[in-house]
Nucleic acid binder design. Sequence first.
DNA 1: TTGTATGCGTTATCAT
DNA 2: ATGATAACGCATACAA
Lengths: 336, 336
Amino acid sequence: MVTITDISRACGVSRATVSKALNGAPDIAPATVERIREQARALGYLPNATARALKVGRSYNIGVLFSDPTGGGISHEFFSTIFENIKTEAERLGYDITFIGKDFGPLSLDFYEHAKYRSCDGVVIASADFSEPAVRRLVESEIPTVTLDYTFEGRTSILSDNVSGMEQLVRFAYENGHRRIAFIHGELTSVTQKRLVSFRRTCASLGIAVPQEYIRQAVYHNPKSSGLETRALLALPERPTCIFFPDDLSFLGGMNELERNGVRIPDDISVAGYDGIPLSQILRPRLTTYRQGAQEMGTEAARLLVEQIEYPDMWLPQQVTVRGELVKGDTIRRIG
Amino acid sequence: MVTITDISRACGVSRATVSKALNGAPDIAPATVERIREQARALGYLPNATARALKVGRSYNIGVLFSDPTGGGISHEFFSTIFENIKTEAERLGYDITFIGKDFGPLSLDFYEHAKYRSCDGVVIASADFSEPAVRRLVESEIPTVTLDYTFEGRTSILSDNVSGMEQLVRFAYENGHRRIAFIHGELTSVTQKRLVSFRRTCASLGIAVPQEYIRQAVYHNPKSSGLETRALLALPERPTCIFFPDDLSFLGGMNELERNGVRIPDDISVAGYDGIPLSQILRPRLTTYRQGAQEMGTEAARLLVEQIEYPDMWLPQQVTVRGELVKGDTIRRIG
DNA sequence: TTGTATGCGTTATCAT
DNA sequence: ATGATAACGCATACAA
């Protein structure tokens, strides 16, 4: 391994001079700087991030937490898109990404300990069970964090516009003549709460009555679960004319159930998903859905975290809402 | 931050003693060890991986390279599954995961430099353009590597059983009476070569003639591209009775094209995918495909890399083939 | 403009 | 059984 000591010897200067020259300090003669840079290149010198981190107290390394309670985690397109963008933006800013998990090796570290152990400058909590004590501990610690789709008191968060998104979906269905709209939602997380309230509120403001049986709980990203609820909806004396699913993937479960019953989409029943993953637009008919701004969420998360790390004194926690967009698709049909 | 020095002061012993006690050295009095451990816990001490890495020359950190030339990278279920398992196994063994990318911050580092800069003990190359010089440089360096689905001379690799997988698919189609089988394959990577050769060889050994027009090139994970080739196949004077797609996702493109032409699956034409991602079994009819052992590939990659890192002297490069399994599904119909 | 000295937190060697 | 000391590679305050 080539170190600054090697360069200093090769150039006949001290290590301090080399360090300064390489870091662009203003008090080294231009000629010397040139000579040192040249040698560094010639020797194939690379700075050692570990040693630098130890010295300056910053690792230029940020942790990413993907601990999807409903399994999968990063394997869903929505999350992997977020991750890709966190990574790209972080690297652009000179930070590396380390995954923070539990059950770490022989030492069993929780999230906070793990992040600390690796000297992470900050952590993006991209998906987690926010009620878990280990998550709270991390968020309440001195480590800067940014949370996705959940807000902790006094902390920064990046939020998808769930209220607006659901409202747009409801209005779109309404404009197409639908008055009997069912909503199969996911587990009762804070995201679900927002969508649910927005669903109810928008329906109310449009004068749509929502029977209790039209609101059903399934499991996110679990097609089978949504399939069962779809079956239940089909068995009702008064079927809905439109069904909203928890997410695009869950819709597939409903789709199968509908097909099995000879119910055609969108001729016999209209449907909508949520997320707007690429898959939803590969399918035919194209799914009506709401595309969350996953790219922007990831980018913003990384950007704000780094900002918070680098300017801790002039930092205020903030909630950033990232707008998505309605994808009209072809699965909501005009009726009435 | 609580350091070893804090503990030494609290216990009235030297830092050396604390370090030894914490690391289970045999030459410290059991009573002292107990006292030190107790204090460490009481003070909330956490070892500092950075300092340790600097001292012992090992970071307990492995790099993961996901640089899918065809875009996406980790966003495909196949790769994200591999990644999840690399991560789980690595963490179990006490190693963390850092992503290795190009275009790193202000310094522009290539893969090798990036891994070196972060003192990675080794790198898993999970998806990359293997002809890229930057990849070669990494592989030919002193850093231990494990490659997935590609073998470099003298290096360890984890291979999916592409030859056997394709053979099983062909035989399955054959057993169901198919004699006119078309194969839409992906870009001509080494994986593609294996599947292609296996396809041709198996067909030959079964006495199936494969017209030139039945072999078509599309792009992996690109439904549209496979859709176009599907269209071309449908336009042939003598249509195939069965179409193999490059992968499960690509099949969706073909599916749309078939539907648009009123060709029903599997009544009018049989199809098969490749990969066996969960999505393939959510669809109806369930896709006939070959499920690659993604979990095991990830786990093995991490395991072998760590082995290589920890026992460099008794290490021999090896090629491990991970078997997958035929998923019969419902899209290949018995004919003839 | 350059160099000397020191320390970040840890482990390893060698005395005691 | 325990401790003093040095070293890993780097950056910085201060001296020259």
